[in-house]
Structures are given as structure tokens and as C-alpha cells.
Design a protein around this nucleic acid. Sequence first.
RNA 1: GCCUCCGUAGCUCAGAGGAUAGAGCAGUUCCCUUCUAAGGAAAAGGUCGGGGGUUCGACUCCCUCCGGAGGCGCCA
Length: 586
Amino acid sequence: MEDALLLLKENIKKSIKSVYDLEFDDIFVERPEDEKHGDLATNVAFLLAKKIFKPPLKIAENLSHEINGYDICFECDGANYPVFSSIEVVSPGFINFRFSDYFLKNQLSEVLKKNDNYGSNKKGQGRVIIVEYSAPNPNKPLHIGHSRNNFLGSSISEILSFNSYNVVKMNYMNDWGTHICKSMLMYKKYGNGRDPDKKPDHFVGDFYRMYEVEHEKNPEKLDKELAEMFREMEQGKKETLELWKKITGWAYEGWKETYENENVSFDVCEYQSNYTKAGKEIIDYAIEKEIAEKDDSGAIIARLEKYGIPDKVLLRSDGTPIYITQDIQLAKDNFEKYNFEKRIYVVDKRQSDYFKQLFKLFELLGFKWADRLYHLAYGWVSLPEGAMSSRAGTVVNADDVFEKIFELEQEEVKNSLKEVTDLEKTSKKIALAAYRYGMLKIDPKQDIVFDMNGVTRFEGNTGPYLMYTYARAMSIIEKSGIEASSLESNIELFENIKMEEKEVSLLRFMCTFPETVSLSADTMSPHLIANFLYNFAQKFNSFYSEVPVLNAKEDLRFFRLVLVCCSAQVIKNGLKLLGINVVEKM
RNA sequence: GCCUCCGUAGCUCAGAGGAUAGAGCAGUUCCCUUCUAAGGAAAAGGUCGGGGGUUCGACUCCCUCCGGAGGCGCCA
């Protein structure tokens, strides 16, 4: 497929040289949105028109006439077949190319050959990308905002791996600071040393919420106590550190289940508490280079305003580090260890200024890898009734959302599954599909209004719709009695098969999957995969309702089975990239 | 005050310089004696926030104004 694109570009270039005696390198070939405009199209005639002062339509006609004589072919089993079936010129000057049926049918063997790897490519080979995501505070349970972060981070990691990058999935625990002391302080006062009687992160979260309530009543007192407790931590007071270990340990223990439910995992966990003494050398260096300076209060400030970025405090006036101090060190250590091609921070967009400051600092410090850092800024998740607020108690817990979707799916599956064998397992997978897909189908930079009732609806552009489409396809394969794995060895070019309109449409779209995979990696946009899958599933369902497979005759039946099998494979691969595992039956 | 992001059908969203701006939901019609109706088919729904500009061509790029969200020195 990629080859066909390159081949076409070369031939267009050649035709320009031949007709106009011009070296023209800037060949742009696109995929037209409208099927009527063919599979590939080029606008070179418009670009050339400026150079040689002739009407675009005339140029397009001359070029297409030339290219028509070129006999562009691909090889299959020792024979040559044309790549294109037609090359058309359309006013005001487009040249449209349509793939031949031979070429399209040949893609099927490609899918069968690569199966679980169909759509992947080699472009990231030998390059490391760190994807830092999730990064919660271990003092309370995860909420739906974390879910979006988790889904984005894990999905982007999958997509990059599929493009052959060597991905390091990193979680960075913000386990050091006064925020942790909030839960600790309340537990110390009111916990009576008891063990959790519920999911441990929720248990810890109760104390966090308790703090918010108490703080309303008597802010000065609590602020003081909190600061005192953190001082004890900093000084290494044994009793306090033990409490800290206990509280954060419960949070981690509870999250384990949440992460599992969400199909999220990590290769490396870094802890902020290991970086409490870090970063100071770099900051000394920054002062030396006059990037940062000490102000009247004694705090170290990076002067960034001349670059259009707000100034940033690097060290408190009492000399203690803050978040950025440690983040500086972490990135530097990471580079020395992994020599990364890119480091992606999956963090919501409210932190955009922070990352601008961080990245600018690295640039000013002269680190050559400064431009390899990338902030994936995603939009905020809010509720129909407004923003979430831990103070107002309107934070929607990730476990509760999942549980609710899970219950609803269980009902659905109970009502529709023919043999209810794996009710719980199947429902859980579908629930996750609903949750993950619901968030990932939306462009990361958009805010999401998270409507519980919307997610619990499973028609239209949803994860369950895609799962259902896959299950229908697999049902056909199962009833046919053939082994999907045996198809590859029996495949041929189906020269005698005349395809129906719906089949051509399905197959043409299937061929664009690898390009979508590549683009979504380049732009770190899982929603491109989601959009592809939805459009593809629609085409499949349309084909499904109009074209009979099992009742077709001999060769035709076999061809259609192959088409169904490949379609299922593409849906499976695409969903995998979104962190969704298919079910065979539902 | 300065900076960033967003504004597309009643609602939720695609559209990353190309051809007649597309889906889903809601509402209106059809289709289960035929491979899973969580499905399919059809019609209806729009001054792409307003106004300028660049271009053969703008939802897309630039400027400006209006609306919404967010961020701006010792929180993370």
C-alpha cells in the first residue's frame, strides 16, 4: 500500500519530466473523501500551472495521457497486474486514480499474511519513546479525569509500539508533598490505627475528603498541622514516614484493581520521593548561566518573560525543591538512561504553561534533547452539571463509573447472548470497550462533558457497536466450518470474482488502515483510529445486510469468507490499539 | 491586563489547503420465514460564531471582533 503511493509519486514525477522537461519534487497525493473521486488524487496540475502559465485542466490532461502509457504494475505469483484501473482528469484540474480490482483483492492476502500485525510498520525501529501518563497523587482513588489520561497514555503507547517504536510506559507517582499529608493527618487523628474495611484507595480517599471538610471549618489550624507533618517527613521522622508508607501503600494497592479493570499497565514507576534532593545542581548551573536568579525573598526564579512565558520559581525561599525541580532531574536522568527520541507527557491542558516553562528551561540550559519533549495536552473532563470539585464532593470515581457500566452491560448481554457462558467476562470486556471508546473517540484537545447516561447507551458510534460488528463477522466464520488460519495457504487473486459495490467499498476502505495507523502515531491521535473503525464497521454492516456469504456459491462464498475474515482482523487490530480486546460472541 | 485552547445540524462529535461540509443521538418513514435488529435502508435537519484578508481553491492559514473554558513567582 505504502509502496503503491511511492510508485505513483515516482510516475507522476516522471511524467512531468517527460512532458514539460521539469524537475518537480513536491508531489502531493491524497485520498479523496468522496469514493467517486477514486482512491488517490493529485493536485500537481494546480501547482504546475503557476510555474508554466498554462491552464490546470490542460496540464492534467497532458500528464494523465502520459501516465496512462506507463503500464504501472505489481507482481503476484510471477505475473504482472495493473495497479490502477482508471486515471481520470476532472475539472478544475484534479487527476484521480482508481485501484484495479486485482490490486484491491491482493490486499486480502496481505491482511491474512500479517494477521495480528496488519497495519503495523517499521518506522520507529530502534528508537525509544517514553510515555509518561497517569501520574496520580497517592492519597485518594482515581477519578474519571484519570481514566481519560490512562486511556490516552496506554492507547498512544500501543499505537507507537505498532509503529515499531520501543516504548517505555512510565508512571510518575506524586507521592511527596503536603497533599499526601492531608490523608495522613486525618488518619492519624481519626483512624484509630485500623485497617481498610473497603477498597484501600477509597479508604484513604475518605480521609482526604474528611480533610477538605475540616479545612473549611478551621483553615489556619489545619494548614499549620499539615506543614508540621510535612516537616517531619522531610526530617525523616520514623513514625511519620511509617504512616506515609502505610497510606500511600493502600492507595497503590487499591489502584492495582482499577488499572487492571481499565487495561492499563506500566513498564516503569518513578517516585517523586526519590527525587527530593535532586535538581539542585542543574539549578546552580542555571544561575551561573544567568537563566535564573535569586530574588529578594531568597527564592530562585527563572526569568522567562522575555520569551513570552511567565517566570517560574525553581526553588522556594527556604531552599526546598518544588515539583519542577524534580521534574528537571527526572527528564535528565531519563535521557541519560534511555537516550529517548521523544518523551511524551500526557497531562491535561491546564498545565500547558508549566510545560512551556519546563521545555524552555531545558533549551536555555543547552540540553540538545530539549526539543524531544512533548506535552500531550488533553481537555478537561467535566460533568453535565459542571466541573468536578473535591471540595463540593462532585468528583466521579473511576471505579464507580466502571461498576455502573459493567452492571448495565451485564443486563444487555443477559438479554441477547444465545448461550450465556461467560456472562461476567464478556460483560466486563464490553463495559471497558464502552468506557475506553467513549473517551478515545474524541480529539484529545477537546473537553469532554461526561454524561453517564450517554456512556450507558450503546447504539451508534460506541465501543459495543464495534464489538458487536466483530462478533457478527466471527459468527459467519464459525458457521462456515472453515478454519480462519487455513485461509492464507489457499488464497489466490480471485480473478474470476466480480465484486458487488458494497464489497469494493469495504475493501477499498480496508486498505487505508495502515495509513491511519501511521498518521495516528505521528500526531498522537487515537481518535483517528476510532473514527476509522467506526466508518469501517458501518461499511461492514452495510455489506452484511446486503450481501449473503454463507449462501453464496463455491468460489464466491470462499471469496466472501476471506473478505469477512479480513474485516474482522482489521477491527480486532484497530480495537487493540485503543486498548480494547474483542469478544468472539456477544 | 497578558497568554493558551475551543466555537460546525436541536444535542454529542468527525472533517489536519481541495471537489456537493459528514456521522451518531433525538424526531419522521420503511426492513427480522434469509449469515446475531446492540443491525440495515430512506427522507428531513447547516449563513461551519461575525467581519476582513491570503489563494485557482478556506471549516482548515493570517488579522480583528464577539462568546465559552483554562493558565499566569515559592500547589501539583
